[in-house]
């Protein structure tokens, strides 16, 4: 399969800190590729290198078949980029923002309207409104329309869903899925694990290193242990009791329950008694399927500690 982005051994330092430590990955044509990791993991730095805004210190990076150092002029015509803060002119109207970005990229709104119509139609009723007066979700849609207006071959979205409510985020992911019909490859980053499942493939990234690259289901299923979910009304007490329980190897709160693995995966019924002796009542335990976040926690444990 043709690679849209190919990276090997990419390094970037800022002063004494290593922002990226030998990053290697490949993005296939026409897929949604996600970088999932916390703030400070190096997502933005990596995206700036991909969009030719920064040069790597070491390593190779080919984007759309061009070298990121020498081919930047050609690349800049073919990339659509949406930086972390939606890059809109707050004092220009929705319409003016869109047509400005269209002219800058040497095209018109009309020419590529069918590409953005799905997204833009949501905000078109407000086209005279200043961008600064839009809600988070509408800003996000406008910024996406602006990044798409020149029909880029590669769309790079840096944390497009940060600070936007759950409904808008869900709509946003729907739009990204629809864009696949237009032959656009999408690279997207997010600090939220639950968004990983929306991508075709993801790279888990932490402290400048990629922990794993694969389809999200494959990564999730890579969880190597038997996982149990334990619930009890007094969570704080429950967590403390589980921590000091001898047969247990990991304890992580997970929403309204606690995810637990046992040493050598031996589930021991003695746990009921143990918890009861610790003064915890109404305990329910069930085996559960690991999510991608469980896998991330496991990978973080083996990689970094």
């Amino acid at each position: 399969m043709k690679k849209v982005v190919e990276s090997s051994g990419l390094c970037k330092r800022f002063g004494g800190t290593e922002a990226l430590k030998s990053i290697s990955f490949g993005v296939n044509e026409n897929e949604i590729f996600g970088f999932i990791g916390p703030d400070g993991a190096g997502k933005t730095t990596l995206f700036r290198i991909i969009t030719t805004l920064l040069l790597p210190d070491e390593g190779e990076l080919k984007v759309l078949g061009l070298d990121c150092k020498t081919g930047f002029k050609e690349l800049r015509r073919n990339i659509g980029y949406m930086p972390g803060r939606f890059s809109l002119y707050q004092d220009l109207s929705v319409e003016e923002n869109l047509s400005f970005y269209a002219t800058v990229f040497g095209t018109t709104v009309k020419e590529n309207y069918d590409l953005i119509s799905d997204i833009y139609s949501h905000i078109e009723p407000f086209k005279k409104r200043l961008a600064g007066k839009l809600s988070g979700g509408m800003k996000q849609k406008l910024a996406l329309s602006c990044a798409l207006i020149h029909k880029p071959a590669l769309l790079v979205l840096d944390e497009p869903t940060t600070g936007v409510d759950a409904v808008s985020r869900s709509e946003f992911w729907e739009m990204l899925r629809k864009l696949r019909h237009h032959n656009i490859t999408i690279i997207v980053s997010t600090p939220y694990m639950d968004e990983a499942m929306r991508c075709d493939r993801v790279a888990l990234i932490q402290e400048g290193q990629i922990l794993s690259v694969d389809r999200p289901e494959t990564i999730r299923d890579g969880f190597s242990r038997k996982l149990f979910s334990i619930k009890a009304p007094e969570k704080h007490k429950l967590i403390n009791a589980l921590r000091s329980c001898p047969g247990i190897s990991s304890v992580y709160p997970f929403g309204d329950s606690v995810h637990v693995t046992f040493k050598d995966d031996n589930f021991d019924n003695a746990i009921y008694e143990y918890l009861e002796n610790s003064g915890i009542s109404d305990v329910s335990i069930s085996e559960t399927r690991a999510g991608i976040e469980d896998r991330f926690l496991e990978l973080m444990g083996t990689h970094l500690h």
Binding site: L53, R76, Y81, R85, F86, S87
Partner: peptide
């Protein structure tokens, strides 16, 4: 400051 420079730089301008 508003991040629009990033997009301008990435454009053919």
């Amino acid at each position: 400051e508003f991040g629009t420079m990033e997009v301008l730089l990435v454009s053919p301008l």
